[in-house]
Computed example of a mutant assay.
Amino acid sequence: MPAPYPLIEIPPGDFSNQFDYPAISMAAAHNIFIQGVNAMAAHALHVTDEKVQPFMLFCLSVLEVVHHHHRVEETYYFDALEKKLGEGYLTESKDEHGTFVPQIEATESWLEDVRDGKTIYDGSGFLAQINSWADDMIHHLNHEVERLDREKIKECFTVNELKAIESEFMKVALKDANFYTSLPILLVCGNPATPWFPPFPLPLRWAIRYWFSRRHREAWEFGLLDLDGIVKPLPSPPT
């Protein structure tokens, strides 16, 4: 299916309810990735020569956010949940990473070659690369949310246990995040329907908008939102 790719429907429930939070927050995070892919696809055929380098940084930053999310899942989050959900409960989700991550890595290598002057940018070829792995990625993103069923979570965890997991998740996620690339992506590829995600404290949001985003400001122009969360007009993606 060619871009634009549909966002994941946010599961029913209340974001502030600890048993609803895992599925809702996972869907919100996954929608950032889809927003990023849609922004890449929307601009792919419209990038002028002088904008190729900032566009490469934007695209590489989107893919790094996807990789970072997977690292946190595989090194902390899945294990933390499986202590109560049962060993192997999320193995299928982990295995699904292998159905599209190698293809993303190939695209990443191509983007790096363009950035480094080894390859000439080709918008049609880039769009074809995106469409070669996006369906598998989005299937996985939807399936992973389904595994975090509210009733299953409530059956296995206490509120305090979930709060502890989410608190540690945030620490692990921020520990090796690139504040100058990954964090601006989370804002400019956000979903207007979930303005509360990511659940950053207000001082950190201000710091991203007014400090960390400054180093590569031209790259963030390719986001679907501006740094204040306002939807921007973008080129129509090819059909």
Results as ranks from 00 to 15, higher is better:
65 V>L: 07
73 E>T: 01
72 V>D: 01
76 Y>R: 02
63 L>T: 04
50 E>R: 11
78 F>C: 00
52 V>K: 01
66 V>E: 10
68 H>G: 05
56 M>A: 07
54 P>I: 04
78 F>H: 05
47 V>R: 02
61 S>E: 04
77 Y>I: 14
69 H>V: 01
64 E>T: 15
58 F>C: 12
44 A>S: 07
64 E>N: 13
62 V>C: 02
62 V>P: 01
65 V>M: 03
73 E>F: 01
67 H>P: 06
59 C>P: 03
76 Y>Q: 04
60 L>H: 09
51 K>P: 09
53 Q>P: 09
44 A>Q: 04
69 H>M: 04
59 C>N: 12
60 L>F: 13
56 M>Q: 13
63 L>C: 15
63 L>F: 11
73 E>Y: 00
53 Q>D: 13
43 H>F: 04
56 M>S: 06
49 D>G: 12
68 H>E: 05
58 F>E: 05
50 E>S: 12
69 H>C: 01
45 L>G: 12
70 H>R: 08
77 Y>M: 15
55 F>M: 05
73 E>R: 00
49 D>Q: 15
74 E>Y: 09
53 Q>R: 13
62 V>H: 00
62 V>R: 02
61 S>P: 04
72 V>E: 03
46 H>A: 13
57 L>I: 12
52 V>Q: 02
76 Y>L: 03
76 Y>K: 04
70 H>L: 10
67 H>L: 15
57 L>E: 10
47 V>N: 01
67 H>V: 05
75 T>K: 05
57 L>F: 10
54 P>F: 02
55 F>E: 01
67 H>Q: 10
59 C>L: 14
68 H>P: 03
60 L>T: 14
59 C>R: 04
64 E>P: 11
75 T>H: 14
43 H>Q: 08
48 T>F: 06
72 V>S: 00
73 E>G: 00
62 V>L: 06
49 D>W: 12
58 F>G: 08
67 H>D: 15
67 H>N: 14
72 V>K: 00
76 Y>E: 05
66 V>L: 07
51 K>L: 10
61 S>Q: 04
68 H>K: 03
49 D>L: 11
68 H>N: 06
70 H>A: 07
71 R>E: 08
75 T>N: 08
54 P>Y: 03
48 T>N: 13
64 E>L: 13
47 V>M: 05
50 E>M: 10
65 V>I: 11
56 M>F: 09
52 V>P: 02
52 V>N: 07
67 H>A: 14
64 E>S: 15
72 V>G: 02
70 H>K: 03
57 L>R: 13
72 V>H: 00
61 S>N: 07
69 H>P: 03
49 D>P: 08
60 L>E: 15
71 R>T: 07
44 A>K: 05
68 H>R: 02
43 H>W: 05
62 V>E: 01
60 L>M: 15
54 P>D: 03
63 L>D: 06
52 V>E: 09
45 L>M: 10
71 R>L: 08
70 H>C: 05
51 K>M: 15
45 L>C: 09
70 H>F: 08
75 T>R: 10
66 V>M: 15
63 L>W: 15
65 V>P: 00
74 E>I: 06
69 H>I: 01
54 P>L: 07
48 T>L: 14
61 S>K: 06
77 Y>V: 12
52 V>M: 08
60 L>S: 08
71 R>K: 14
61 S>V: 05
45 L>F: 10
71 R>H: 15
69 H>E: 01
54 P>H: 08
